[in-house]
């Protein structure tokens, strides 16, 4: 389990990184490496060029811009758990981060890496969809923002273009007094989720509900809740048009069964939490 050879770059500036990415059609961005390096060690991934972005300090920041919480691509899962801005304005992210893998993985793994990896069972793609996030992408001479809903294409697949680097994610901050909840089912704490649900309830906006780990990409099920008043109705509506993935360890009907429970628990907690 030793990786194939590669050419290594450790750019000190964003421009330098973008230049390197522009120059190669077989470059991998190395952020935390907690998904990429296992694949490289197993020789399931073998990029010719590895661009290590860990020295790009500008990507390792959390800040608030208007109604957005902006999290740099290089922010580690662990640092989101205790971040004062996160705890004050969007504690949901903190409780989601706590469920990611284990401590020695969270200290290194990054939010940007997780978003680009786009594992259907990972927490951050779900959070991105739930919180109507914008994904900031930069390439040499170009920058764009894309809605999270348009970023995730399928399992391990995004609309990130060649030469592009995900530099930040911009979560929409729910209003003060919002209720929020996250539920996931794993075989063991720290494993990838079999199914998960997250919910935000605000006084002045429609309820938001997203589910993950069930279809190849996170699903925004907020629309299904329109006009409904009871939790059982909402569960039924949220799970109705879902086509769960099917694999031997988590058959489709199993995912469907547990999803209903997760969604229900999540809705109930978010509703309870609102303005209380």
């Amino acid at each position: 389990m030793k990786p194939r050879g590669f050419t290594y770059h450790q750019p000190k500036t964003l421009d330098e990184a973008l230049g390197l990415l522009a120059a190669s059609d077989d470059a991998a961005v190395l952020a935390g490496g907690q998904s990429l390096v296992p694949m490289m060690n197993a020789r399931l991934a073998s990029p010719e060029i590895v661009v290590d972005i860990n020295r790009l300090a500008s990507l390792d920041a959390v800040r608030i811009e208007g109604d957005r919480l902006v999290v740099g691509a290089l922010v580690r899962h662990e640092s989101l758990i205790g971040h004062p801005l996160v705890q004050e304005r969007l504690p949901l992210l903190s409780s989601m981060a706590e469920t990611i893998a284990h401590w020695p993985i969270r200290t290194r793994g990054t939010i940007g890496g997780s978003l680009v990896h786009a594992d259907p069972a990972a927490q951050w793609p779900l959070a991105a969809v739930l919180l109507e996030a914008e994904i900031e992408l930069q390439s040499q001479g170009n920058a764009r923002r894309i809605d999270a809903a348009d970023f995730f294409e399928g399992a391990l697949s995004t609309t990130l273009a060649a030469g592009e680097l995900l530099t930040a994610i911009r979560f929409r901050l729910p209003s003060a007094g919002h209720g929020a909840a996250f539920r996931l089912l794993t075989r063991r704490p720290g494993d990838y989720a079999i199914a998960m649900a997250a919910c935000v309830v605000e006084a002045d906006r429609p309820r938001r509900l997203a589910i993950g780990g069930v279809e190849p990409r996170p699903l925004d099920r907020s629309g299904a809740l329109d006009g409904l008043t009871t939790v059982p109705e909402m569960i039924e509506a949220a799970c109705r048009e879902v086509t769960p993935m099917d694999d031997p360890r988590a058959p489709a009907d199993y995912r469907r069964r547990v999803l209903a429970q997760l969604v229900g628990d999540c809705l109930a907690e978010a509703l309870r939490g609102q303005a209380s």
Partner: peptide, 19 residues
């Protein structure tokens, strides 16, 4: 293989020394 990097525990098998 867990070691501490700047005080934080990390998997040494998921880091390249050159980093």
């Amino acid at each position: 293989c867990t070691v501490q990097v700047d005080g934080a525990p990390m998997r040494a098998c998921l880091l390249f020394a050159v980093q």
